[in-house]
Nucleic acid binder design. Structure first.
Lengths: 248, 248
DNA sequence: ACAAAAGTGTTTACTCTACACCCATGG
DNA sequence: CCATGGGTGTAGAGTAAACACTTTTGT
């Protein structure tokens, strides 16, 4: 964000007034409910204006000395206790008038949102109910009208999630240390939808890639043949990084 | 960027001080010099502190009432006159201390950079020399040490450019209305490097996709058989949108 | 024995790659 | 007539999609 070079706007006595910003971080937090095969989104109830009484994406304003990423992790940590997660920056929404608080009377402060998207493990994501604010997982398909432009951010986040799942090993950030290929397949089906691939083809492709390490252990869950437990081998994945690798 | 829900920070009398930001927009502007087969990057010379005397990516601070995108287009328009271009948001760099102006004495103002990347047509990009600021195209490989974290932003932009070229029809935003398949191939080779694909395979794949419309016209440039001129058919491309289509 | 889930294999159709080769033009 | 770039075709390897089949468990 170097200053402009033209004197007309770079000069301290510039005639063009710069905007003053508060910077917010809003998180699209996804989780896969493997019991019911549903993709969940975390939303929080707003109690203050604007949009009091609306659900919204969990967010916060960036504090002095705090990086954007740190703010994103803070929001997450304030809402849920979780060990394993994947988080990355999504997009920055910053048009004027996206936030009703930007009235000219309010000192002309603009509100900008650096959105992030996160994927957390559903089973060990413990919601932090503070007794005041509502907080809930919604199945993606049933998310209601949200505050601000948060539905738009959510749509954007979902697109990114699907892309990431196809090209990157983020599923392993959210699966247990050892898992069955069925677990992995269910996760993919839940996010990408039925019919993205046949189980046996999915299985063959992934095993051929060679970064799934068979632990030798088996697990039995009710009826059916016991499944082998696998572990993600990050070292074996290294050479595949940056390649247009497709999981689907 | 909804306000936090926890009282400790959402309350007007919050004990946690929020950061105040100036928001900058920095553009990674690429162009393909088809004469010499070089990928070029636009840089401008800084005359003011910090980093006076360094080359930097063209940038500006966002003004009151101005959207991020508008600011990005303004920077571009101030540096070059160009008709055809592609522009999109890249990433937001916002850690504390990325800008030396963020001294505690300076009212604790943070500087955040919403970087964008653009691809413009080299032939009709006319640099605007204002007599004061230096401005130049550098071949990507020879870009010097830049101000701030701009080399990092440039690296990020180059990665995005390559990805975009593989998945999206941005090449046609920067090619003339009609072009030969050789023109298109050269553009790809220049950006993606030799050996991304053989010409005849590239050709066959693209023609099969069906969105290149043969105009029937031919062009002759020196020796060699005259080439057919093609036009990008946006309507025919529509159904391919959102599909993981690969040009390479 | 049977259902359920895991795991293997096979067939068929494409797609990718690396070439070889023909075509039309300028010098 | 030959160098130059445009354009076509093809063999062989590899990949993808659909689906049939076997294995191992719980009930």
């Amino acid at each position: 964000m170097s200053a402009k070079l033209h004197r007309t706007s770079d000069h301290p006595l510039s005639p063009v007034p710069l905007a003053d910003f508060k910077v917010g971080v809003d998180n699209v937090i996804f989780s896969v409910d493997t019991q019911q095969n549903r993709l969940m989104v975390l939303v929080v109830m707003r109690h203050d204006e604007p949009f009091a009484g609306y659900w919204s994406l969990p967010g916060t304003l960036v504090r002095q000395g705090e990086s954007l990423e740190a703010a994103a992790y803070r929001v997450l940590a304030e809402k849920i206790r979780v060990n394993t997660l994947y988080l990355e920056q999504l997009y920055t929404f910053g048009g004027p008038d996206r936030d009703p608080r930007e009235s000219p009377q309010a000192f002309n402060v603009r509100y900008l949102s650096v959105s992030h998207f996160a994927l957390v493990r559903f089973e060990d994501a413990e919601l932090i109910a503070d007794g005041v604010s509502g907080i809930a997982w919604y199945p993606l398909a049933q998310v209601p009208q949200l505050a601000f432009d948060h539905n738009e951010i959510l749509t954007y986040g979902y697109r990114r999630l699907r892309n990431k799942l196809e090209y990157s090993p983020i599923a392993f950030d959210v699966l247990p240390e050892v898992f069955t290929l069925g677990d992995l397949y269910q996760l993919y089906v839940t996010v990408l939808g039925e019919g993205f691939s046949d189980y046996s083809n999915f299985r063959a492709r992934l095993l051929k890639l060679g970064f799934l390490q068979d632990t030798g252990q088996k697990t039995s869950r009710g009826a059916g043949r016991p499944a082998s437990l696998y572990r993600f081998d990050a070292a074996a994945f290294e050479p595949l990084k940056e390649k247009a690798m497709v999981f689907i």
